Amino acid sequence: MDGRLILFENRSGGSIIWTTDTSGLGVETVSLLNNGNLVLMGSQSRVMWQSFDRPTNTLLPGQTLSYPQILRPPATRSVTSYYKFVVNTEGIALMWENNVTYWRTDSVSSVTVKEVRFNANGVLELYDDMNKIVWSVSSKDFGDGSVSLRHLRMNQDGNLRIYSWDDDVRTWRIGWQAVEDQCNVFGSCGLYSVCGYNSTGPVCACLYSDSLDSGNGVSGCKKMVDLENCKAHTSMLVMKQTVLYGLYPPLDVDMMLNEEDCQDYCSNGTTCFASTSKADGSGLCTLKKTAFICGSTSPAIPLTSFLGYV
């Protein structure tokens, strides 16, 4: 009666979980519009609150995302989402947590970004504060008159996609995605994992067989050894034609060693994170002591540092 939408914990009127906070604003009606927007309206159909102003992981046609709003995919089981689609003053970007940007628009630094809009024709447009388009991308079915339903969604795999409804097969098809190669999405396969390829495209795998870890609600693989026993059971795993992009920032390196010295150092070290790479025909070891393979239980960066693609 006071003009709020309220979500209660149970049907008998338990504690309030969520509310629109529109009490006393003169709300008279609530309507779900044809464009998917849920609105609370006052006199003369004046909008007092609308769901389009509070996006979660999806933009519908006609909906905008303004600085500093974000799209974040829902959590999986007990794990919160690490990925987000952000609008900032320089453009739009996909980020892992707050420090890793793995996709962004071309530089538009000469202007101040205002918002991104998703249109019914499948075009995603970025506007500056003068209401001019400074960047845009369209779905591959742009101009197809048979497509009547579209949406833009930030997915749990860290990719941003435009979807179009295929009425013939009754399913959503991908019309565009920000990161074409899923292996380039930071941390795409989870902890201690690698992203590789087969005949169908990118696939996730563990560093060694039978190590998939799905019991704790976190995607990824099991550790090869317990940290307490690391020194007694160390081994060197060399992965050729592999890019390890988990070192972040990339230039945060302590020393460079060859493979033999690297193995010796990490076998005797207490705080060592090592990665091997091939350069000029010789094996190099990049050491970063702010993270770890053995000896530390509180890394400065999460263990997605071990991820790469083969």
Rank of each mutant, 00 (worst) to 15 (best):
M239P: 00
Y248N: 15
C221K: 02
E259M: 09
L247C: 00
G215V: 00
L227R: 04
G175N: 10
V243Q: 12
M239A: 06
V253R: 14
G217H: 05
D210K: 14
E228S: 12
S188E: 02
D168I: 04
L212Q: 10
C183P: 06
G217K: 02
N155A: 14
T242K: 02
C230D: 04
C195T: 09
C189S: 12
G215Y: 10
V225A: 04
C230G: 10
Q156T: 14
S193I: 03
V194F: 14
Q177N: 15
L247W: 12
V194R: 14
C204S: 12
D166I: 01
L149F: 14
R150K: 13
N198Y: 14
D252H: 13
Q156S: 13
C183F: 09
R161G: 03
L227E: 08
L257Y: 10
F186G: 02
H233V: 00
P249I: 00
S199I: 06
M154C: 01
C189E: 05
Y163K: 04
G145F: 07
G145C: 06
H151M: 04
C204H: 04
F186P: 04
V253M: 13
L191P: 00
R153G: 06
Q177C: 08
L149M: 12
L207Q: 11
S164Y: 10
Q177Y: 13
K223E: 14
D157A: 07
P249R: 10
K223T: 08
D166G: 01
M255Q: 13
S138M: 05
S209F: 02
V185M: 01
M239F: 07
G215R: 09
C183V: 08
S211W: 00
C230Y: 14
C195S: 09
L251C: 12
S193A: 15
C262Q: 06
G190K: 02
C221E: 02
A205K: 11
N229Y: 11
G196M: 08
L212K: 06
F142H: 13
G158N: 08
G220P: 03
Y163F: 15
N258I: 01
D252L: 15
R170G: 01
S146A: 13
D157Q: 09
C230H: 05
V253I: 15
K240W: 01
V225K: 07
G175H: 05
L257V: 12
V218P: 01
W172Y: 15
R153V: 11
L244V: 15
L207S: 04
P250G: 06
V225S: 02
R150V: 05
N229L: 11
M256R: 08
D157C: 07
G215F: 11
S148A: 11
H233M: 06
D252C: 06
Q177V: 00
S209R: 04
G175W: 01
L212C: 00
C195Y: 05
Y248F: 11
G217V: 06
K231F: 01
M256K: 03
T171V: 10
P249H: 08
V238D: 10
S199W: 03
M239E: 08
S219T: 07
N258E: 12
M255I: 14
V253C: 11
G201M: 08
K240P: 05
A232M: 09
G145S: 14
D252M: 13
C189L: 07
N258S: 14
S139D: 15
K223Q: 13
M256Q: 05
W176V: 12
T234N: 10
D168W: 03
D144S: 13
I162D: 05
